[in-house]
Structure formats: structure tokens, C-alpha cells
Amino acid sequence: GALNNGSSALNDGGALKDNDALNSDGAVGTVRNEKDSATVRNVGAIPLEMVKDLLPEYEGGPNFNIWIQQLRSAGKVFNLDHSALRAVMISKLKGSARVWLHARPLFITENIDSLVAEMQAVFAPTHNKLLLRKQFEARKWSVGETFQKYYNEKVLLSDPLNMDECELIDHIVEGMPDEQLRNQAYIQCYTTRVQLLQAFGRVELKRDSMQMPRTNVRCFNCNSFGHMAVACRKPKREVG
């Protein structure tokens, strides 16, 4: 049979142009090479893989609420639909959480909201407000972690407590075990938690800094060594 649009598909020598081929009807069609196909597939897969890399694994511990908030936040940033977010969630379940999932014969058909609600009932039962506040206050900045990690988890723990900005800032600062860093935060008088994060976000708490003697620091309120006036617990001395 005759070639459709043959004149445009043939080069001067009568051969087919690059990337062109005959289809089953004898018409000229463009052949997509494997490299192009792989590129198309990878473009859609990049966000999903990035979320999987960013999200930590969940093994059934008490930090379920923090983990699920991280999952939902990542889903919003990368604009993932419920099906994609559900796939990411299932891929990150390990340990007892994965055992629980596989014990459910119909888990593959459940939507993400149902799975989250059931997992929350198992791994993160509702606590009273007093217990939630104790957990919040017990979270301190730990040796070896950055301030940003401590800050993020402290803020997440504060969500159910409905704290105002000033109270939250005070608690975040009080959770800094290094006296010198804590005093610096008090002196700066930060009015927003964002300012606090910008100032200390990249600081990593070192064990040595907590063991350094403070004998070279003198309080101008009580004239004692070892602390600054802003942290002095004695009555404020009148000026003059």
C-alpha cells in the first residue's frame, strides 16, 4: 500500500527519517526510544520517592502523632493525592506497625483516613490533657541533636495544648539545658518562635558545653559567680 504522508517522512535518499517507522497500517509513526520513555516515567515518580526519603520509618512507638503529622505535611508540600500518600505511608511501616497492617486481610482496600484512625486507636490512644502537658514539658533539647529537631518536636507536642506564642517560647527556652544558650535566648527577648528558630536552628547541643564550668561568669545582681543576672534567682537589686 502507499505510505501516508510519505513525502514528509522520507529524506532525500528515500529512506525513513530518524525516529520514524512504519506502523501496522503502513503509516509512518514516531518511535519513542527507551531513554525517552524512562524520562517520562521518572518525572512522575520523583515527588513520591522524595517523600519516601524524607519520611522516617514508623515501628509502632509512642511517636505516632508526630510521624503522621510529618507524613501529611510532606503530602501537602509535594501535592500528593490520597492514593500516593497511602502508598508512602504503607512503605514506611516497620516492626509491630507492619505486623498490625498485615494482620488486616483487607488493608489494601482501606483509604488512608481509615488506616490512620485505626492506627491511632492502637498506637496513640487519646490521653487526657494533663498527661499531654507532662509529655510536652518532659521534652528537652538532647545532647547530639540540633535545635531545629528539638524545636519541631516541641511545637508538635504543644498543638493539643492550645498555647499562646509567648508561653510556647518560654517552654522552648526552658527546655534548653545549656545555661549559656538559655541566657542568650532570654537576653534577646524573642517575640516569635520563628525568630528563636532562626537564631538557634543550626546549633547542635554538645556534651562538652554542658560540662564547662561557669566560674568565669559573674552575676551583676548578686555578685556571685556561675550565672548571669538574667538568670539570678535572688531578689533584684535596686540600681543606685
Rank of each mutant, 00 (worst) to 15 (best):
H102R: 11
I108S: 13
L80F: 02
G61R: 04
T39K: 14
W67F: 07
I108A: 14
N111V: 02
A45Y: 00
I66L: 06
D81Y: 01
A103Q: 12
P125Y: 05
V122E: 15
P125T: 08
S91V: 09
E57H: 11
S96K: 14
E34Y: 06
D81W: 04
N63S: 11
K52M: 11
D81L: 02
V77Q: 13
S91G: 10
V88I: 15
E118A: 13
D113H: 10
K134V: 07
A97F: 08
I112A: 02
N63D: 14
D113N: 15
P47A: 06
L132W: 02
L132H: 05
Q120R: 13
A103D: 14
W67L: 03
L131H: 11
R32C: 03
N33L: 12
S37W: 00
S91T: 08
G75A: 06
L54R: 07
N65G: 06
V51I: 09
K94P: 01
S91A: 15
V122G: 01
Q70E: 13
L131S: 10
R86L: 05
I46M: 11
E59K: 10
H82D: 15
R133C: 06
S73I: 01
N33S: 12
L71C: 11
G75L: 01
S83W: 00
Q69D: 13
N111L: 00
D53A: 14
D53H: 09
P125C: 06
W100S: 04
A84N: 11
V43W: 00
L115S: 07
K52H: 04
S37P: 03
M89H: 04
N63L: 02
I112Y: 01
L106G: 01
A38G: 06
G75H: 03
F123V: 06
P125I: 03
S73R: 13
G44P: 06
F78T: 05
F123S: 06
Q120H: 02
S96C: 01
F78A: 12
L132I: 04
G44Q: 06
P105K: 10
I68R: 04
